[in-house]
């Protein structure tokens, strides 16, 4: 009982610590680490309650649950990091486009806005592409702001 409580309690502390860090910190990587620590805490509670002393064999069911949980956590981590990388790309290309459109409007009048016509995702003429459009993959007209002056 006491070892279970000792270890399970540590798991709860880790959960609370991760939760605190998640709420307090701004940077995404720190939030992600915080979630993983909180998750580690929850898994630790499962492992602790599976432990039944050094004589009895441990309960295998929580062990299997934790294994599933670890794989789920790493999957989510991978997806979060990929989304984050894509967000950085989108932000940088948006910043690039901003800089360019500023210099463009200094030399000439703003280009006319795109006419509101129905467009399908395939509809994309090569001449419409600007370097900023080329950066993120799979761009469709809907992904661009229709009000973005270009083309």
């Amino acid at each position: 009982m006491s070892a279970q409580f000792l270890y399970g309690g540590a798991g709860i502390l880790l959960f609370a610590l991760g939760l605190w860090s998640l709420l307090v910190h701004e940077a995404l990587l720190r939030k992600l680490i915080a979630i993983n620590i909180a998750g580690g805490g929850v898994f630790h509670v499962f492992i602790a309650i599976a432990y039944r002393g050094d004589t009895a064999p441990p309960d295998p069911v929580p062990h299997a649950l934790v294994l599933t949980g670890i794989v789920v956590a790493v999957s989510a981590t991978a997806l979060v990091l990929a989304l984050h990388r894509r967000l950085e790309q989108a932000e940088e290309s948006a910043a690039d486009a901003e800089g360019r459109s500023e210099s463009a409007s200094a030399s000439s009048a703003a280009p006319p806005p795109r006419t509101p016509t129905e467009r399908t995702p395939t509809e994309r003429t090569p001449t419409e592409l600007t370097p900023a459009d080329l950066t993120p993959a799979d761009l469709t007209p809907e992904t661009l702001h229709p009000e973005t002056p270009h083309g």
């Binding site: 649950l65 794989v71 789920v72 999957s75 989510a76 997806l79 990929a82 990388r85």
Partner: peptide
């Protein structure tokens, strides 16, 4: 559960692939 866990792993990869 384990079958679905493999599906979760796949879903994450499909999400990553969809980003470029």
């Amino acid at each position: 559960d384990t079958l679905l866990e493999l599906a979760v792993l796949l879903a994450a990869l499909l999400g990553i692939w969809s980003l470029g």
